[in-house]
Computed example of a mutant assay.
Amino acid sequence: MPIIFRSAPVTEPYTFESIGRNWQQDRITRPGGYPFYHYLQTEKGSGRIETAAGAYILREQEGLLIAPFIRHSYEKTDSEWIVRFATFTGTAERSIPQIMGNRQVVFAGAGQGRPISRLIDDSIAIYGSHPPDGRQLSVNCYAMLIHIADSSHAVHPEEDALYRNYILPVIREIEINYPLPLTVEKLSRLVFVTPQYLTRLFHRYLNCSAYEYLTAFRIGKAKELLITARRLEIQEIARRTGFSDASHFISVFKKAVGATPLEFRRLN
């Protein structure tokens, strides 16, 4: 039952305030919320989380991120509820609301939960070395936030045939081939529907258009490169993340993030 709390000054853009796994979760009530973004994910059993933004049942590998100071409570709905968890801080902590689209609560389905579990386990292992690799922990922390942010708004979309047949194949295509010149037209042909219908389905399940999802995914990958590959030129990052040229990349990035790629790199 490893549980770690931060004991060093915050110097990295993103890091963990606390992190743990194999925790037997008791009933918790927080009328004033928690002071950090925090994420809870079921390892075994199930639990119910009540928040100011709604109620959720978390089954195995499903998780929920809750923004700071949001009223919530949770309790087990099975004979036991074993969880993983992480809370987030860092010098760039104020950018987390933007990463999450200013959502108070973000649900992560089992598909997102599996890579998040691996990141939690890997981060706990890093804390076992002396001294821990703060840079790698920051990368893991940011990767977790991106995985959570890319989660669907629907609680169980994988149970819906429309989601499985039309949305999921397109998401997988974006995740694999985002550096290529993808368009909504090409993505819609992949699943044999019109671009207009694909866009309606994306709005239904993900609250954004297919183009907005593709752009947000590329921006997320660009952020990773800006932080983890600091010697890469902006033009090369644009090319690696599917943008037609550096000028277009800078314009789209600034609109989405509120800063140019170079400003984002300096801030982080």
Rank of each mutant, 00 (worst) to 15 (best):
R6W: 01
R6P: 01
S7K: 05
E12D: 10
S18P: 11
I19V: 08
I28M: 09
T29G: 12
T29Q: 15
P31L: 11
P31A: 04
G32D: 15
G33M: 03
P35N: 12
Y37P: 03
H38I: 07
H38M: 08
K44C: 11
E50V: 09
Y56M: 02
R59V: 02
E60S: 04
E60Y: 05
G63S: 05
A67M: 08
Y74K: 13
F88Y: 09
F88C: 10
A92Y: 14
S95Q: 14
I96L: 11
P97G: 08
Q98I: 07
M100E: 05
N102D: 07
N102Y: 08
N102W: 14
F107C: 08
A108D: 03
D121L: 09
D121K: 15
P131M: 02
P131W: 06
Q136D: 09
Q136G: 02
L137S: 02
S138H: 06
Y142A: 11
Y142C: 06
M144I: 04
M144W: 06
L145Q: 01
S151N: 01
S151Y: 00
A154N: 02
V155I: 05
P157V: 00
P157Q: 01
P157M: 00
D160T: 03
Y163V: 00
Y163S: 00
R164C: 04
L168K: 02
V170Y: 00
I171L: 04
I171S: 00
E173R: 02
I174Q: 06
E175D: 07
Y178Q: 04
L180R: 14
P181W: 10
P181R: 07
L190Q: 13
Q196C: 12
Y197T: 01
L198I: 08
T199A: 14
L201D: 08
C208V: 10
S209Q: 10
A210T: 00
Y211G: 11
E212A: 13
T215G: 11
K221I: 07
A222Q: 06
K223A: 11
I227V: 10
I227A: 14
A229W: 09
I234C: 13
E236P: 03
A238N: 03
A238W: 03
R240T: 03
H248G: 12
I250S: 02
K254A: 00
K255E: 15
A256M: 10
A259D: 08
T260W: 07
L262A: 15
F264L: 09
L267R: 15
